[in-house]
Simulated scan of single mutants.
Amino acid sequence: MRLSKLGGKEIVNLNDGGRLGLVADSDLVIDEKTGKIRYLIVPDNSLQLNILRNRTEIEIPWEAIRKIGNDMIIIELDEN
Rank of each mutant, 00 (worst) to 15 (best):
V29H: 06
N80K: 14
W62A: 15
G35E: 08
R19K: 09
G69K: 06
I68E: 01
D44L: 01
E76C: 04
M1G: 14
L47G: 02
G7D: 11
G21K: 11
K36D: 09
W62R: 10
L3N: 12
L20H: 12
R55W: 09
A24V: 06
R2A: 09
D16R: 10
G7A: 15
R53I: 07
P61V: 11
D25M: 05
V23N: 03
Q48P: 00
N50D: 13
Q48Y: 14
L52V: 07
G17F: 08
A24K: 14
K5P: 00
L6T: 03
R55G: 04
E59C: 05
N80R: 14
G18E: 09
I68L: 06
L52C: 01
G17W: 08
I51S: 08
I11Q: 03
Q48E: 15
I41H: 01
A64K: 10
G69N: 08
G35Q: 11
L3P: 02
G8M: 11
E10S: 06
I37Y: 00
S4R: 14
N80Q: 13
E10Q: 08
V23A: 09
R55N: 10
N80D: 15
P61N: 10
K9P: 01
T34S: 14
D16C: 07
L3I: 15
D78A: 14
G18K: 15
I65A: 13
E32D: 13
I41Y: 00
I58S: 03
S46Q: 11
Y39K: 07
G69H: 01
R66L: 15
L6D: 02
G7E: 14
G18R: 14
D31R: 02
V12I: 15
N15G: 00
L40D: 06
K9Q: 02
W62K: 11
A24Q: 10
I37G: 02
I65K: 06
D71S: 13
N80S: 10
E63P: 00
N50A: 08
A64M: 11
I58G: 02
I30G: 03
K36I: 08
N15M: 06
D25A: 08
T34K: 06
I11Y: 03
L22R: 07
D44A: 03
G69C: 00
L28T: 02
I68F: 01
L49S: 13
V12Q: 09
G7Q: 14
N13V: 01
E76S: 13
V29Q: 08
D16L: 12
L6H: 08
E79G: 00
N54C: 05
L22H: 03
L14F: 06
K5I: 06
I68G: 01
G7R: 14
S46V: 05
E32I: 07
G8F: 13
R38W: 04
A64G: 04
D78L: 12
G18F: 03
G8S: 12
I58K: 10
E76A: 10
D31E: 08
E79S: 00
R2E: 12
D78V: 11
R66Q: 15
I58F: 03
R55F: 10
I51H: 07
M72D: 03
E10T: 08
V12K: 08
V12L: 12
I74N: 01
L40T: 07
I41N: 02
K67M: 04
R53W: 09
R66G: 07
L28K: 01
N45S: 05
E57W: 14
R38Y: 02
D31P: 00
P43F: 08
D16Q: 11
P61R: 11
M72T: 03
L14G: 00
G7H: 07
